[in-house]
Simulated scan of single mutants.
Amino acid sequence: MSSPPVTPRAWASADPYAAALRTGRGPLFLRRDDGWLLPLEVERWCARADEVDRDVLDRCEGNVLDVGCGPGRLVAELAGRGRTVLGIDVSQAAVEHTVRLGGQALRRSVFEPLPGEGRWDTVLLMDGNVGIGGDPRALLDRVAALLSPGGLLIAETAPVEVDERVQVAVVGLIDSGEADLPFPWARVGTRALLAHAQGWRPSGQWTAGGRCFAALRSRSANNSADPANSTAVISSQRAAKPSGDRPVADR
């Protein structure tokens, strides 16, 4: 197993990111160290789940963990359906937004201890979150430890075939000069994700609305999760408030 990457605090404290989530508007970018910019879809993230999102959520099984939940549109949609769901994000602004929408969320990195480890039926890595930590194999290993045996991972991949590990910073207006310390990130297309997914079983791939997705099954086909126990674990977090000194943002 790869060593887990150090979760960057840069995104967590990124003023451009927090400001964008609070206003629901961009522009916002990931800027590579060579100056290349990746636009971030703040308006879509802060809106309600769209048709493409809802199709993904229709595929979810059992209790769901949304890793890097951002402002919480997917958590809120699943909660509205009466599903057991928890979002995690290292951004305080993201967690607060998710809670305001009626979802449950914790300010937590995916590489920190989490409730229900080994008992989640579905893990979501949406909106480019396969890039978290800059090491796709380490992230997949961690997700496997979170899932129940035979559990389902649904990941949104890059819309082009790419497999790169880079240093990026969150920036707002291009000419504002406002940026944060760089942190490791990855961009992974579907083919590259499948190549990194050693020990996983491919369960489907599709495109919709210009977005690309892949579904993978964890190592064992024997799903032994106890839904009642998993639900109890999540419910125990309902009154907990995010810790202000935790590292922020998986997004």
Score class of each variant (00 low, 15 high):
G80W: 14
A169T: 13
P39K: 05
D175I: 00
C46I: 06
H196Y: 11
G150H: 10
G210D: 09
L21T: 06
L153A: 07
P247G: 00
R44S: 13
E164L: 11
A192S: 12
P227A: 10
A155S: 09
A240I: 08
L140C: 09
A144N: 04
N229E: 15
R9M: 00
G80H: 12
R137P: 10
P27C: 05
L181H: 13
D66K: 04
S148L: 03
Y17K: 01
T98Y: 11
C69T: 14
R83P: 01
A145I: 00
R83G: 01
L74K: 02
V162D: 08
G26L: 04
G133R: 09
L30N: 08
S203T: 07
D245H: 12
L30C: 05
E96V: 02
L30S: 08
E178G: 03
T231A: 15
R54Y: 00
A144T: 01
L125Q: 12
P8N: 04
Q104V: 04
T122L: 07
V99G: 01
R31V: 15
Q237T: 15
S3A: 14
D180F: 00
A179T: 12
A195S: 10
T84L: 00
G24C: 10
R44M: 06
T84I: 00
V110L: 08
G102N: 09
A145T: 15
S176C: 11
D50R: 05
L30R: 04
R251P: 14
V233K: 08
F111C: 08
R73I: 10
Q92F: 11
R107N: 05
E112T: 01
V166I: 15
D50T: 07
R191S: 13
V67H: 05
R219F: 12
A208N: 02
P182V: 14
G199A: 06
S2C: 06
R187I: 13
R108S: 14
F213P: 03
S235I: 02
G244Q: 15
R211T: 08
G244I: 11
W36V: 13
T157L: 10
G199L: 05
L57G: 02
L139Y: 11
A10I: 05
D175P: 03
V166C: 13
A79L: 03
R83M: 01
V248I: 11
V6F: 07
V67Y: 03
E43W: 02
G199K: 07
P247F: 00
D163F: 10
L216S: 08
R48K: 09
N223H: 14
L216E: 06
S3I: 00
L173G: 14
P5D: 09
A12C: 03
L140G: 09
A179Y: 00
Q92A: 15
L125D: 12
L193Y: 01
I154S: 01
A158Q: 03
V52A: 15
N63R: 14
R211I: 11
A192M: 07
E96L: 12
A49P: 00
R48P: 00
E61Q: 15
D245K: 13
A105Q: 08
H97Q: 14
R22V: 12
A208I: 04
S2G: 02
V52Y: 07
L78V: 07
P202T: 06
A47R: 02
H97A: 15
G177L: 10
L30T: 03
V188G: 02
G24E: 14
D250G: 15
Q167W: 12
V56Y: 03
V233G: 06
